[in-house]
Amino acid sequence: MTGNPATALPRLESAGLDGWMVRLFEEIDEANLPWITALARQCEAAFADALVDLVPSYTTLLVVFDPVRLSPSEARQKLAGLLVALEPDEHMGTGQIHELPTFYDPSVGPDLDRVAEHTGMTVAEVIDCHSRKTYRVFALGFAPGFAFMGLTDPRLECPRLDTPRKKVPVGSVAIAARQTAAYPTATPGGWNLLGRTSARLFDREREGFSLLRVGDEVRFVSVSREEFERQGGDTTPMEATG
């Protein structure tokens, strides 16, 4: 990359006494992820015991280290060394591919009708449009195991609710702007709810805890009410979940 060194990417930005923000890209793009996941793995090896946390997100990787073992300038040097030789993970990354069984129905997806109206599609077309595409996990945040995925078909683009719901039921599958997500726990939320998945997205007893990781690929597979229930899904209608 060429240009002004102060604005050229990748760039290392101070994130406090024990952190560096590695800014790799300016724009959200699925092609960013193999670079970000590759750098995260290399940081694990290079920082070893001095590594505290890594937070990958759409265009960045936050690297948090132990400032007793490494000074900020030593950490910066390490990162600069990794960036010089960075190669993206092959085949768009080493992420897993997940299929999330999803029951799309107004009883558990109370915004289906409104999204259909907003996008000028029928409910069936909305469901088809959402379940047809394979998404990438861009980031985890907001709540444990909450994965921001995209990008959705431009026709599905939809603003968030003006007033977030106080409680969105576990497993709710939702869209906002050009992203999609599934709620791992019951939390407040302002996204448009299309249905519910029976997949267990966050499990403190499971190795790795979160089903989805940054860089993973995800498909929502439309299933019948019977299949959803058979897989342990909860069909309690939205209005009855409090």
């Binding site: 952190g19 990958p56 936050l62 945040g141």
Partner: peptide
């Protein structure tokens, strides 16, 4: 910004111009 990791003590400034210093239980990205 496009959401990114936030470290302890990060002082963010939302559009209302009043800074918020983020402590231990902050959301992981913002």
């Amino acid at each position: 910004l496009i959401s990114e990791g936030i470290n302890l003590g990060g002082v963010q400034v939302p559009p209302d111009g009043q800074p918020i210093a983020l402590l231990n239980d902050r959301q992981t990205i913002g």
